[in-house]
Amino acid sequence: MRRSKRIIAGLALVAGLALPAAADQPQRVVSINLCTDLLAMQLAAPGQLVSVSNLAADPHSSVMAEEAAAYRANYGLAEEVFLLKPDLVLAGEYTARATTSLLERLGVPVVKFAPATSLDDIPAHLERMGAALGREAEAQAMIEAFNADRAALAPTGDELRPLAAMYYANGYSTGLNTLSGKVLDAAGFRNVAAEAGLLRGGNLPLEVLIMAAPDMVIRGNRYPGQSRSEDILDHPALARLGASPAAPILADRDWICGTPRILEVVSRLTEARSALEKIR
């Protein structure tokens, strides 16, 4: 506690020098959350975004790892963020609460974003990010493009909706009230987990999956190294279940964050559904 008070006091002494004067458009923006990293990298003006979280450059976590390499990485620590002299910090609603609380006490503006759980959340997040960055026109253009692309991908009501399952380490799957579940629905699939009563994320027993007999099982990329949690993915029953050549492999990074790029996943799944219907 004493150390924390000393840090606050020390940083507060230079607060007046460390923070630039307020402006309509922030000039030094720091993001400490993967999903706000991705939104900010797509919307920020050149030179406006000065740092993103270390996860943004991790190819296992981020769909924009190459782009993130151009920015200074941060680890979400209050001291390092403050020393970057931000006039705006972008964070997730549940990101490093000790960090965001301390920054706010030091007078640093912090804008927090809730996780996207639906495709409908994406335009709202773009609008909010545009307002935070002073890039409203750019955000509106991106929203209009997103809505148009989404409409073009929407399945018609009379199309067959095959049954699919998302299955990951430890038998993890996601239901309808999740971003990945909404993506699966948007691509024209029914969801095994949702039909089994799993509304959000959780364990889907292999026996339940087998009895559902899905038309397709969507698996994720494996992480480097070995983990016993992935042993279930090698089960012989799973190897024969939903083993469609059309099934795409989707990494966690592909649909962990709600940005316009998630429509690429919808497109891939839509193509997989069309290919599946041709071979059924």
Results as ranks from 00 to 15, higher is better:
82 F>M: 10
108 V>K: 01
91 A>G: 02
119 L>K: 05
71 Y>H: 12
80 E>I: 03
74 N>M: 10
137 A>F: 01
106 L>N: 07
94 Y>E: 15
128 R>Y: 03
138 E>H: 12
98 A>T: 11
100 T>A: 10
69 A>I: 05
99 T>D: 03
105 R>W: 03
123 P>A: 08
132 A>L: 07
135 R>S: 09
140 Q>L: 13
85 K>Q: 13
128 R>F: 02
70 A>M: 06
121 D>T: 08
134 G>P: 07
133 L>Y: 03
99 T>Y: 00
91 A>N: 02
106 L>E: 02
132 A>Y: 04
79 E>Q: 05
101 S>C: 04
135 R>I: 05
112 K>A: 15
106 L>T: 05
137 A>M: 05
125 H>Q: 15
99 T>M: 05
127 E>V: 04
132 A>S: 11
116 A>F: 05
135 R>F: 04
120 D>I: 08
69 A>C: 09
110 V>Y: 00
90 L>D: 02
112 K>D: 03
138 E>M: 09
124 A>S: 09
81 V>Y: 00
128 R>K: 15
103 L>A: 04
81 V>F: 00
89 V>L: 06
108 V>H: 01
107 G>T: 11
130 G>W: 00
121 D>M: 11
127 E>A: 15
126 L>K: 00
140 Q>G: 10
136 E>Q: 15
128 R>C: 05
67 E>I: 10
113 F>A: 13
86 P>R: 07
101 S>R: 14
121 D>F: 08
123 P>L: 08
96 A>S: 13
68 A>L: 11
69 A>N: 14
83 L>D: 12
136 E>W: 00
70 A>G: 12
88 L>Y: 01
90 L>E: 04
71 Y>G: 07
96 A>E: 14
125 H>R: 15
123 P>Y: 02
89 V>Y: 03
106 L>A: 07
94 Y>Q: 15
95 T>Y: 04
130 G>T: 07
114 A>M: 09
133 L>A: 11
133 L>R: 08
116 A>R: 04
138 E>P: 02
82 F>N: 02
82 F>Y: 15
139 A>K: 04
119 L>Q: 11
132 A>M: 09
107 G>A: 09
79 E>R: 00
103 L>D: 00
129 M>S: 02
132 A>F: 05
98 A>E: 15
100 T>M: 12
73 A>Y: 01
84 L>M: 15
68 A>N: 11
129 M>E: 01
89 V>E: 02
109 P>Y: 14
108 V>W: 01
124 A>H: 08
126 L>S: 00
74 N>Y: 01
77 L>N: 11
98 A>L: 13
96 A>T: 14
109 P>E: 13
90 L>I: 07
96 A>W: 03
102 L>N: 00
77 L>M: 14
110 V>M: 03
70 A>K: 13
119 L>H: 10
115 P>F: 11
72 R>T: 15
119 L>A: 11
133 L>V: 11
82 F>V: 06
127 E>N: 05
108 V>Y: 00
79 E>K: 00
97 R>E: 14
74 N>D: 10
135 R>N: 11
103 L>Q: 01
128 R>V: 05
100 T>R: 06
76 G>V: 02
76 G>C: 03
112 K>T: 13
79 E>F: 00
117 T>K: 13
77 L>F: 09
103 L>K: 04
83 L>C: 12
74 N>V: 02
103 L>S: 00
111 V>T: 04
73 A>K: 14
125 H>G: 08
132 A>I: 07
